Amino acid sequence: MLVPVPREAAKDTRDSRPKRVLFTLVFLGSGGIERSVCNVMAGLDPRRFATRLFFHHRPPPGREDRLPRNAQVSWATDSYDYHRQNLPLYLWHLLRHAREADVIVAGQEGRAALLACLAGRLLGKPVVGMIHFDWGAFHREQPRRQLWGLRLLYPRMQRIIACGQDTARSFQALVPVPDGQLQVIPNFVDGDVVRAAAEAPLPDWAPPVFEKPVVIAVGRLEPQKGFDVLIRGHALARQRGVDHHLLILGVGSLEVELKALARSLGVESTVFMPGFVANPHALMRRSAVFALSSRFEGLPMVLLEALALGCPVVSTDCPSGPAEVLEHGRHGVMVPVEDAQALSEALGRAVSDEVHRQDLSRRARARAEDLSAARALEAWDSLLSSL
């Protein structure tokens, strides 16, 4: 005979199991957004949270090590191409997994947020949206529908998580939401993991690059990252006699254009662009300087990784993130955006002046200690538990 379970006992059973959290991304790229989501998933207590990661597109082969260990991963399609008519397919697959979830987390803006919000509405599930960019700057480069999407979708989410204080302020200026709905949980890295990866040997192609001091940059080859300004700054420093190499890791639409710029400036033999590198940390650790030349950011993961490795940092004072991380120059050198001359001088001094370089390295390590992963994960735990 079936014995009915008292309502209170049923509630206790539900509360005793881990909360099921579905994170969703469009694809597994090489950028900081994917790393920030994976860091949250890897850091959550598995006794309290059962996590799954859903992609619209299958993760590319060779990038499995970027996923959280023992992560449950699923995707909608094996194709890497996006076609708008496939949106119902992505949504249908997302709904399959979201039915089993207690909370849906849209790991990035755009299409991931749109479908997560639709799934939440259809299934009656709470949705959390993550904000990674300074939208005050970013929306000017995007189609107008992106800004409409922000204003339509995010006020309907239960919580919005911004990766930094400046990012939150710029978002709220565009999308007014109540203070209790918008929360700042900074991006973070696991310093021990980053430093362990940095101990790996150099790739076979890399030793000739490191025959001279290296300025390294990491990111998508897109206008946002300002690599055109960095290449011009590199050329100016070499003209002043600062003998060094520039290493830019990443892929993107500007690869041909950036290589042509290096040729036009006569520095093609000292600018190295090997494309995507699975483990950039081994190269960052051995570099003289880490350069961030962005026109805008959110709270860049690669900057946090550089600090964890003790890399001397030279960064643009772009909106937003670098000033927040570097405390307006206390832990790295900051230069104006789009100023190749100032960038050149800062990089040249960091390469040439060992005392200065060692001081920047010490400051970087000290700042990395301040940016604790534990505090961010505690905030994520509290947020997800409350929904």
Rank of each mutant, 00 (worst) to 15 (best):
R84N: 08
V40Y: 00
G32N: 06
H132G: 03
G191T: 09
A340F: 07
R35C: 02
A173K: 08
H83C: 01
K212G: 00
L326I: 09
E268H: 13
L153C: 04
V194G: 03
P213K: 09
L360Q: 10
G332A: 06
P203H: 12
S269L: 05
C311M: 11
R357L: 09
S36N: 14
E199Q: 14
D45Q: 10
A76L: 10
F171A: 04
D15C: 12
V214K: 07
A98E: 13
R295E: 03
L265H: 02
E305R: 14
A137S: 15
D12G: 06
F49S: 10
C318T: 07
D370L: 11
A350R: 07
L28K: 03
R145L: 10
R263F: 05
A200R: 15
A379M: 10
Q142E: 12
Q181S: 03
A306P: 09
K19Y: 01
C117T: 15
L247T: 01
P126Q: 04
C163S: 09
P280T: 08
R48D: 07
R156L: 15
R84Q: 12
D353I: 07
H356D: 14
G298H: 06
G32L: 07
H132Q: 11
S372Q: 12
I104N: 02
L25T: 00
F55G: 06
L343W: 01
E297G: 04
P59N: 11
G32W: 06
Q146G: 03
F272K: 15
D179W: 02
L115D: 13
P312S: 08
P300C: 05
V313T: 12
Y82V: 05
L299Q: 15
A260S: 09
V215F: 04
F27P: 01
L221P: 09
R367P: 03
R232P: 06
V215Y: 03
R232A: 14
P4R: 15
G226P: 11
A116V: 10
T24G: 05
D179S: 13
A379W: 00
L25V: 02
E345D: 12
A379R: 15
A119W: 08
I248Y: 11
D45I: 07
P213S: 12
L236F: 05
L147T: 14
D353A: 04
E327T: 04
A112F: 01
R144I: 03
R195K: 07
L114D: 06
S386G: 08
R140Q: 11
R66S: 08
E369L: 14
R238T: 11
G252A: 01
L202C: 00
P6W: 09
C117F: 06
A376Y: 07
L384M: 08
Q158F: 02
F210T: 07
D339K: 04
W135R: 00
L91Q: 08
G32H: 04
W92L: 14
L299G: 04
T51N: 09
V194H: 01
A137I: 00
S320Y: 01
H57K: 15
L304R: 13
F272M: 10
S287Y: 12
C38R: 00
D243S: 13
L147A: 11
A196L: 11
S315R: 13
R14V: 10
I33L: 12
G62D: 11
L44H: 05
D78G: 13
L347C: 12
L254R: 14
V251R: 13
S294E: 04
G107D: 00
H356F: 13
T270H: 15
I160F: 03
